[in-house]
Amino acid sequence: MIHQIRIDNFKSLVDFEIGLSRFSCLVGLNGAGKSTVLQALDFISQQMRGDIDSWLEQRQWEPRDLGSKLTAKQNVDISVQVETEKHGLIEWSASFNRQSLRCTTEEAFCDGVRLLKVEDAEFWIDRSVKQGSLRDVRSEIMFEYQGSILSQLKRKQIGEPLQALKEVLANIRSLDLLSPEHLRQRTRDSAGHLGLGGQKLSAYLHEQGSEVRQRLLEKLQHAYPQLASIDTRSLRSGWKHLDIAEQFSGKVLSTPARHVNDGLLRLLAVLSQLASDEHFLLFDEIENGINPELVEFLVDALVESEHQVMVTTHSPVILNYLEDEVAKQGVIYLYKNAKGATQSIRLFEIPSLAEKLQFMGPGEAFIDTQLTELATEIQSLSAKGGKDVSAAKR
């Protein structure tokens, strides 16, 4: 699980830190940086996949779009803390150069022992946390790559702790551009994932096989009892087609994906990812297109998932279905400081919200609050404490 990230010089994120729970929910005013945080996590994941060019093309971005207008820095600095079951806490930091599209410096530590160092076109690797010296495996970098050097090195080259770090970060999966238009598209293959907008849904479900589709059907039937089947087939030239069948009065009606309602398609996409092998799932404005009576079903599925999950929302309804402890740990308020940089704090660590939570539900406390006034309260706390109170980063 990823416990904490720090990123500097990524869009509105300047010296930005955030602490993460198993389930995290970002709230805040429009423009506060909620979507940017999801994009930053996806950017961090791309460091371990290595194809930065394709990722930028997917988002229709240029390298210059990554940097913040609030600073003159060129590199994007990253720091991540990952808790692994076998190796404990692993810390990785890197400096990403927007011209070369690679991390020009990197370090990784496990239990205080340095596992990796990249500097001056050379790298050092310690394959075991029990070893103490990196000098014996110092190597000159003689190959081209993008992102982290770990994206190009194999398991036998880097050892188990670094491989565990690589897998956790590489298996962050963002669906922050999820939309009905994308979900309805036919595609030839999915490469094992849905795509940022869910545009590979038909191919993804086809490749997962009938058993996976049956399990998804059984889950969805709790929300849509009339569902009869989720069917896919391969067309000419390899295109994959998706049909949803429903039963009414004993008659089965099959509907192609291009005519299926938005909410069902979105739920199908979300649940398919909760059944995947990804480690960390990111969803933007999770309530979009979902009927209010199905929100509890969706929230329960996200909170109870074995995956680490982050969502953004503008809806107090989402918070209403969170247990108080889940809300205390996972709901994070984002706002911009006087310089325009995004800041974070756990919503219910703000005194006025903590007080309301004693006699209101999380959603009720949220809707009873003027978000425009919270920044003033946070600033007053910072002034009294003499330090930054962005507690969500600790």
Rank of each mutant, 00 (worst) to 15 (best):
M1L: 14
Q4F: 00
R6F: 15
D8P: 01
E17Q: 12
S24H: 09
L29I: 10
V37K: 02
A40Q: 13
F43E: 12
M48I: 09
I52L: 15
S54E: 14
W55A: 14
P63N: 10
K73E: 11
Q74F: 00
S79C: 05
V80L: 04
T84Q: 08
T84W: 01
S93R: 15
Q99C: 00
Q99D: 13
S100I: 07
E107G: 08
D111Y: 04
L115M: 14
K117C: 02
E119M: 06
V129K: 10
Q131D: 12
V137F: 13
I141G: 07
K156R: 14
P161S: 09
S174E: 13
D176W: 08
L177C: 05
H182K: 09
L183P: 02
A191V: 00
L194H: 03
L194C: 03
G195W: 04
Q208F: 00
L217I: 14
K219L: 11
L220G: 09
D231W: 08
R236K: 12
S237G: 02
I244L: 14
E246T: 12
E246Q: 14
A257G: 07
H259A: 11
L264G: 01
L265F: 03
L265N: 06
V270A: 01
Q273N: 07
E278D: 14
E287N: 10
E287I: 15
L294M: 09
F297M: 08
V299C: 03
A301F: 03
T312K: 07
L319H: 02
L319M: 06
N320Q: 13
D324R: 15
A327C: 05
Y335V: 00
R346S: 03
F348R: 02
P351T: 08
G361K: 14
E364T: 10
L381R: 05
G386L: 06
K387V: 11
D388A: 07
V389F: 04
A392L: 05
R394A: 10
